[in-house]
């Protein structure tokens, strides 16, 4: 018994050490660290990245955030806070978007949450598209909310469009059109309503509508 316990403890410890060493190695191998000239900042970034990788988080979005902070002359403390906050949002997005695990989705979900998209929306979007990536849809949603469209309205429109089978190109075109309208002075909610209806008119009804009429003929 004692031997088994000891063995289990040993294995877990060994795995933890290997993961930590692997994380450190992965961080050390990221050539982008050399773009950070300041020693103190580089140490902070290395440390935060290492810890995140050890927790199973992707390093790419975090490294990009760190480099953005360096470019914007943020202090090491601020960069640490921003990276930690992003990791927290990615973790939450990952939970909401489960079971799919994709770095792009995780990062897009994190951005959406930061922009003010309700957590429930992420769950609904995953439910609407359980078997395909939705990073693009999340990006468009973030773009709309950033342009001033109320998060609930943007979420509803996007979910409706997804239910009708809107393509990624149609959604990004919608986001761009709304942005153009807002820049031209139209109210964001009105712009989305008008443009969204335009896209909707091009789409077939969702399959669920036909299923309500089982005797209906095509």
């Amino acid at each position: 018994m004692i031997s088994n316990r000891f063995g289990s403890y040993f294995v877990r410890s060994a795995v933890a050490v290997l993961v930590a060493l692997g994380a450190r190695s992965a961080v050390a191998q990221d050539a982008r660290l050399t773009l950070i000239r300041d020693d103190a900042t580089r140490d902070v970034v290395r440390q935060v990245l290492g810890a995140a990788i050890a927790r199973g988080m992707p390093s790419d979005p975090l490294m990009s955030k760190a480099l953005e902070g360096v470019a914007k002359k943020a202090t090491p403390k601020r960069i640490r806070e921003a990276m930690n906050a992003l990791e927290g949002r990615m973790r939450r997005a990952n939970e909401l978007l489960a079971p799919t695990r994709s770095v792009d989705e995780m990062a897009a979900g994190a951005d959406a949450l930061y922009a003010g998209v309700p957590e429930k929306t992420l769950k609904l979007m995953r439910a609407a598209a359980p078997n395909r990536p939705i990073a693009m849809e999340l990006g468009v949603l973030t773009e709309m909310v950033a342009n001033g469209v109320p998060p609930k309205q943007a979420s509803k429109m996007l979910l409706d469009l997804m239910a009708h089978g809107a393509t990624g190109a149609q959604l990004t075109a919608l986001g761009s059109a709304v942005q153009g309208d807002v820049a031209a002075g139209l109210k964001p909610d009105v712009a989305l309503d008008l443009r969204g209806r335009g896209v909707m008119s091009l789409l077939p009804p969702p399959p669920s509508v036909n299923s309500l009429n089982p005797r209906g003929r095509p």
Binding site: E81, A82, Y114, L171, G175, Q179, A183
Partner: peptide, 19 residues
């Protein structure tokens, strides 16, 4: 001309979505 998202450093960045 781009949607503005908070950058976590007290400022904003523009967001570009490529389909």
């Amino acid at each position: 001309s781009l949607a503005k998202i908070r950058d976590g450093f007290g400022g904003e960045s523009g967001l570009v979505i490529i389909p």
